[in-house]
Computed example of a mutant assay.
Amino acid sequence: PWQHRFTFIMQDKPMGLAHAVKIAQGFLQDDSFLMYLGDNLIGESVKSFVDTFVKENLDSIILLKRVADPRAFGVAVIDEESGRVLRLVEKPQNPPSDLALVGVYLFNSSIHSIIADLKPSLRGELEITDAIQNLVTAQGKVKAHILEKWWLDTGKKDDIIEANRMVLDEFTERDIRATVDSNSTIAGRVFIDSNSLVENSIIRGPSKIGKNVVVRNAYVGPYTSISDGCLVENSSVECSVILEGSKIISVDLLDESLIGKQSIVTKHKGVKKSLKLMVGDDALVELP
């Protein structure tokens, strides 16, 4: 909807984040750029982050978040007064700070010469943390921006469910564009897109339902996202993400689940039960 153009550059082997920058150099040329790892979700805009980078003519700025247990992350040590980055430590057993690397960075073109001289780490990758550390060592102007709102790493099913909950809670507004019959109830902040149909059902927000969706004889509870072209029939769904073209039929309760594209989850007659599922694309799950 935003009329953006995308260029995809394939990384043939998983040789590290700095390697990804290296193979993109021909595309990036001398431009400054934002590096944003795709499994990160943050609760604030990067605009202030970018504005600081431009205004102060920095070589790099990195996004940090204070965490309870920094041992699982790359950790930054900064000058608290100036915000300058002093050093980075990868997953330290004795963390020198509680400031974890979020995975959102801004660089100018000086990073390319740093990466060109970079040696692979023990795991055989060109590490972006090593590149930033070398930039700091070379007296580059590297600052930190500390994230005040939430940060989620959506690499696992439960992380995606939590990210869905956070986004729906913060951004959903009530907007009903679908056909809803008189036997149905829509409560709270619910978005339902056009050409969808709700019959004899209850939908409670915050939740979001895409185009060409049919919800029939069903309950859709809070924190549920249903993509385009789905069917939810004779079922209850809560706190779940259902991707395009999938069908949920006669399931007593689908809770905290992630359902891939074009999948079917259906239940035959049997004992009532609540389900927590992670289902890939084009799957069929039949329950007794």
Rank of each mutant, 00 (worst) to 15 (best):
R66H: 03
E44I: 00
V77N: 00
Q3G: 09
I192A: 13
G83H: 02
D39C: 01
S250A: 15
L64K: 00
K22I: 05
G83Y: 02
I42W: 01
E256P: 12
D30P: 11
E127L: 15
I78G: 00
S227C: 14
L37A: 05
I203V: 15
E199V: 09
S236E: 07
D51I: 10
L17D: 12
E56D: 04
L152N: 13
V220G: 11
V220D: 15
L86I: 10
D255W: 15
A68K: 09
S182A: 14
G140S: 14
Q11V: 00
D153F: 10
E162Y: 05
E148N: 13
R216W: 09
L58Q: 00
L17T: 14
S235L: 07
R174S: 11
G270R: 02
E233Y: 05
S113K: 10
D39H: 02
I248E: 07
R66Y: 02
E44N: 01
I114T: 14
I186C: 05
E170I: 09
I248N: 10
R71P: 01
Y105T: 02
R66V: 00
L275R: 10
D255R: 15
R177D: 09
L37T: 10
Y219N: 08
R87I: 06
I209R: 02
L122S: 13
V46L: 06
K156S: 06
G188P: 06
I160V: 09
L88T: 01
K276W: 12
S48I: 02
L63H: 00
R87W: 03
N200I: 02
I186D: 04
G205W: 01
E173P: 08
R71C: 04
E286M: 13
R87M: 08
L28D: 08
T154C: 15
Q262P: 09
L41K: 07
G155E: 11
S240N: 04
E127S: 14
E81K: 10
H268D: 11
G188R: 03
G43R: 03
Q93H: 04
D12Y: 08
F73L: 15
D281A: 12
V89E: 08
F171S: 11
A131E: 08
N134S: 13
V198F: 01
V251R: 07
M166G: 05
M35S: 08
I259N: 14
E44Q: 04
G280W: 12
P288A: 10
E81S: 12
N217F: 02
G16M: 08
A163P: 05
A76E: 00
S45I: 04
R71S: 07
S274L: 11
L118G: 12
A100W: 01
